[in-house]
Design a protein around this nucleic acid. Structure first.
Length: 550
RNA sequence: GCGCCAGUAGCUCAGUUGGAUAGAGCAACGGAUUUCUAAUCCGUGGGUCAGGGGUUCAAAUCCCUUCUGGCGUACCA
């Protein structure tokens, strides 16, 4: 926000001085306070083409800046940096903008309404959601919220793999449990079948509806009935878990439906038309190696069935047909081997592969008291998303999943997430919000409000601590844009934690409400109201509640 | 073997896409409550940014290479 202003000012000065320049220079916030509020390397990058030393060039630019009103100072430093300090008045002016925007501060049209498809979670419909899905849910949903906040038009989609091998195994697993219920001895439960308790519960539930009726229909009908029942129930179960986590989807895309609507055939025929398929060893292959994949891939197996790859191509075909500008797939790390062939298929279909972006979320390790919680599907001790929410709460879970950048492994400390103290960053942020509310309440009791506030009083906000907080808040809009562009919502967690920290320190050092100094009280109230709004907005964007009382 | 991701303080992680002297929190130690919420604050110590080379005014950041860890490399999904 401020950076763009400074940038504009620099450009207009370069024009008026008749300098040759390119606009590749940057405006930065130096990490040493002595270097001012902002700095630019413009003189260093453009010295050569003006045949001047960077310092000289910088000096000329600085002269023009000294006449400008929003700047307290402009100085040449080191090898040719220009360091700026903005005037207090300027910061006060910006603060009034934050207050005026309220919880809309940071909202922007930056994304220009570009249509974005965010596909995430897309867990197999064969059991309850686990913690990996929880990470994907928190990540995808937060990115969704932020992208929409900065002007994109984003959609959330969940792809249900409700066809193929695994759902057949699911049906068979149900059947075994169903038989068991009716007193049959099923012997050892097959290794590849689904072992979880939920399978028994589903069989039980089905039995309540159908009783022994299913023994009297054909095996095909029975399995189909069981499959549909299980898919329905599990889908509902997953939806409920996501709902509890504050995550909804605009669309649930079913693989079965894609198959019924003939999209698989459509995709295959396009590939054939493009002469990108061939037959060999009784199978039909895709020339993916022509598009950068390391080898060709089978589309139709020699037994006549499509590989899992085909519905995936078909699904992505629909993504492109629906006209999205940006298509984001959020995947687990075990999928990166298959992305080259998917991208190959998109190219073969004649679409712009650059519109497809893959975000890989790395694995999660759960820790309890310093010990890693071992999970294995075989042993059936997978921690589900519901258990996690029950254990640490929605807010903490979401925060911890968002807190780390997507392509890094995540160590989740269960004990810390549960802890209600300053060690726990979630509470630290929420507490700052609650504290401010409490101060506002106190102020009201003392008849101090912002109703009759005169912004000329803002000149009383002259403490370095106060100006630093305003500076930090002014970064907020740019950070949201960076998040949307880099697809890295963890930056918001870092930002809000810092802001909360600044507030807690401020609180300890200065008294906000003091009836003896009405004007000063109002002024500080004004400042912390801005802080509160931004914390609230940040927490909302992360799907975390912003309590008024704790 | 090949490919992808990661390696920053004892631990968990940031680092504004190449900027000036690399930052937080936790853990350790010492302090603060007649005060708007102590779920808070103040202070102290802690680094060969995995190693080496290169690119340039400038590298934790970009390129090459070695090492370590995770994952992938099916006519499975």
């Amino acid at each position: 926000m401020v950076k763009t202003k400074i940038r504009k000012d620099i450009l207009s000065i370069l024009e008026s001085l008749n300098f040759k320049y390119n606009d590749k220079f940057t405006v930065e916030i130096p990490n040493v306070i002595e270097h001012g509020d902002f700095s630019t390397n413009v003189a260093m990058l453009n010295a050569k083409q003006n045949r001047e030393k960077p310092q000289i060039l910088a000096e000329r630019i600085v002269e023009s800046f000294r006449k400008k009103k929003d700047y307290k100072s402009a100085e040449v430093a080191g090898p040719g940096f220009i360091n700026f300090k903005m005037s207090n008045n300027f910061y006060h002016k910006m603060l009034t903008r934050i207050i005026k925007s309220g919880e809309d501060f940071g909202r922007s049209p930056h994304g220009q309404g570009k249509k974005v498809l965010l596909e995430f979670v897309s867990a197999n419909p064969t059991g309850p959601l686990n913690v990996v899905s929880a990470r994907a849910a928190a990540y995808g949903d937060t990115l969704f919220r932020i992208m929409n906040f900065v002007g994109y038009h984003a959609f959330r989609e969940f792809y249900i793999n409700d066809a193929g091998n695994q759902v057949e195994i699911l049906a068979e697993s149900i059947e075994l449990r169903y038989r068991e219920l009716h007193g049959e001895r099923i012997g050892e439960f097959p290794l590849e079948a689904y072992h979880g308790e939920y399978v028994k519960e589903l069989a039980n539930k089905l039995n309540l509806v159908e009783g022994p009726k299913l023994f009297h229909v054909s095996e095909k009908d029975r399995l189909e009935r069981m499959m549909n029942f299980a898919l329905d129930e599990i889908n509902k179960m997953q939806m409920d878990s996501l709902e509890r986590f504050g995550v909804q989807f605009e669309n649930w895309m079913s693989e079965k439906k894609l198959r019924q609507e003939g999209i698989l055939e459509e995709a295959l025929s396009y590939l054939a038309e493009a002469k990108c398929t061939y037959e060999s060893d009784d199978a039909i292959w895709f020339y993916s190696s022509r598009f950068g994949d390391e080898k060709d891939r089978v589309l139709i197996k020699s037994d006549g069935n499509p590989t899992y790859f085909v519905p995936d191509i078909a699904y992505h075909l629909t993504k492109f047909q629906r006209g999205f500008d940006i298509i984001i797939d959020v995947l687990g790390p075990d999928h990166h081997g298959y992305v080259p062939r998917l991208k190959a298929a998109i190219q073969a279909l004649g679409y712009d592969v650059n519109k497809l972006e893959i975000v890989y979320l790395q694995h999660i390790n759960l820790f309890e008291s310093g010990q890693q919680v071992k999970m294995s599907k075989r042993a059936g001790n997978i921690i589900t998303m519901d258990e996690l929410i029950d254990y640490v709460g929605k807010d903490a879970a979401r925060y911890f999943f968002i807190d780390r950048k997507p392509n890094a492994h995540l160590n989740f400390d269960l004990q810390l997430a549960k802890k209600q103290s300053s060690d726990n960053p979630v509470y630290y942020c929420q507490y700052a919000h609650a504290r401010i509310n409490s101060i506002i309440k106190k102020a009201k009791q003392e008849k101090i409000t912002l109703k009759d506030f005169d912004i000329r009083s803002l000149k009383k906000l002259d403490k370095e601590d106060e100006l630093r907080i305003i500076k930090h808040m002014l970064n907020f809009p740019a950070i949201l844009i960076t998040i949307a562009e880099t697809r890295e919502p963890h930056r918001l967690a870092t930002f809000v934690l810092e802001l909360a920290g600044m507030f807690h320190k401020y609180y300890a050092k200065y008294q906000v409400v003091n009836p003896a100094h009405r004007e000063l009280s109002q002024t500080r109230l004004y400042l912390i109201t801005a802080i509160m709004n931004i914390i609230a907005t940040s927490l909302n964007l992360m799907g975390i509640s912003a309590p008024k009382k704790m």
